[in-house]
Amino acid sequence: MENNPPVLKLKMTFIEKLLNVVGILSFSGVMMYMIYTWNAVPNLVPGHYNVSGEVTRWGGREELFILLAVGVLLWIGMTVLERFPHVHNYKNLTEANIKGQYINSRMMMNVLKNEIAILFPFIIWNDIRVARGFSSYMNTWSLIIIVLILTGTLVFFIVRSNRQKRKAANTS
């Protein structure tokens, strides 16, 4: 079965739909903010921060659109991948655990893409703040928190997948 997993039609959960709305609102909100503040944004904006949160490279304000485009393209790409859980990588896929594994993998993709959909607008918003002379929220702690959230999400869904496999093996 693992070489040719079946395609299952599984409905999106309420949580997945809710997170998609949050992701779309996050991107929409930062686009509106960019439009609203564009005339007040200086020509140079932060392009890179070091681990301490200090700006190490400045770039043209047009780079904000590149950052937005990368975030949106990642969100779209992950949305497409989310729709096809049968192409994700699985180990020990069986009839007893296939539905749970597909849903778990799809939800992991959904949560990660929507965390990205919050992260990219946060970075854009912070870059605009810094360019306008306000203090940055990008620092060592924000980097640690971002890494912990993303890693925590992966660990949560991997543990959940392993529990589902054990549960399915015990009921078979």
Rank of each mutant, 00 (worst) to 15 (best):
residue 6 P to V: 09
residue 8 L to D: 10
residue 8 L to G: 07
residue 9 K to I: 07
residue 10 L to R: 09
residue 10 L to D: 11
residue 12 M to S: 14
residue 12 M to Q: 11
residue 15 I to E: 12
residue 16 E to G: 04
residue 24 I to V: 12
residue 25 L to C: 10
residue 25 L to Q: 07
residue 27 F to M: 14
residue 29 G to Y: 01
residue 31 M to F: 06
residue 32 M to V: 13
residue 32 M to L: 13
residue 33 Y to E: 06
residue 35 I to A: 07
residue 35 I to V: 06
residue 38 W to G: 04
residue 38 W to D: 04
residue 42 P to K: 05
residue 46 P to V: 01
residue 46 P to S: 03
residue 48 H to V: 06
residue 49 Y to I: 02
residue 49 Y to R: 05
residue 51 V to F: 14
residue 55 V to I: 15
residue 56 T to M: 13
residue 56 T to H: 10
residue 57 R to T: 10
residue 57 R to H: 09
residue 63 E to M: 15
residue 63 E to S: 15
residue 66 I to C: 09
residue 67 L to K: 06
residue 67 L to R: 05
residue 68 L to P: 05
residue 69 A to V: 03
residue 69 A to W: 03
residue 69 A to Y: 02
residue 70 V to R: 05
residue 75 W to H: 12
residue 77 G to I: 00
residue 79 T to G: 08
residue 80 V to A: 14
residue 81 L to E: 07
residue 84 F to I: 15
residue 87 V to H: 05
residue 90 Y to S: 03
residue 90 Y to I: 09
residue 92 N to I: 15
residue 93 L to I: 11
residue 93 L to H: 13
residue 94 T to N: 12
residue 94 T to P: 01
residue 94 T to D: 13
residue 95 E to A: 12
residue 96 A to K: 09
residue 96 A to T: 13
residue 96 A to E: 11
residue 100 G to Y: 08
residue 101 Q to T: 07
residue 101 Q to Y: 03
residue 107 M to C: 06
residue 108 M to E: 02
residue 108 M to G: 01
residue 109 M to T: 06
residue 109 M to G: 02
residue 109 M to Y: 07
residue 109 M to D: 06
residue 111 V to I: 15
residue 113 K to H: 04
residue 114 N to K: 10
residue 114 N to M: 05
residue 114 N to V: 09
residue 117 A to G: 10
residue 117 A to C: 03
residue 120 F to V: 06
residue 121 P to H: 12
residue 122 F to D: 00
residue 123 I to C: 04
residue 124 I to S: 00
residue 124 I to N: 01
residue 124 I to K: 01
residue 125 W to N: 13
residue 125 W to Q: 10
residue 127 D to G: 03
residue 128 I to Y: 00
residue 129 R to D: 04
residue 130 V to W: 00
residue 130 V to G: 03
residue 132 R to F: 00
residue 133 G to A: 01
residue 134 F to D: 04
residue 134 F to I: 00
residue 135 S to G: 14
residue 135 S to Y: 02
residue 135 S to W: 08
residue 135 S to C: 05
residue 136 S to T: 11
residue 136 S to A: 07
residue 137 Y to W: 13
residue 137 Y to S: 13
residue 139 N to I: 03
residue 141 W to I: 12
residue 142 S to D: 14
residue 144 I to F: 11
residue 147 V to H: 12
residue 148 L to T: 14
residue 150 L to R: 09
residue 151 T to K: 03
residue 151 T to F: 08
residue 151 T to V: 13
residue 156 F to H: 13
residue 157 F to P: 07
residue 158 I to D: 15
residue 159 V to H: 12
residue 159 V to R: 13
residue 161 S to W: 03
residue 165 K to F: 09
residue 168 A to V: 12
residue 170 N to Q: 14
residue 172 S to K: 10
residue 172 S to P: 07
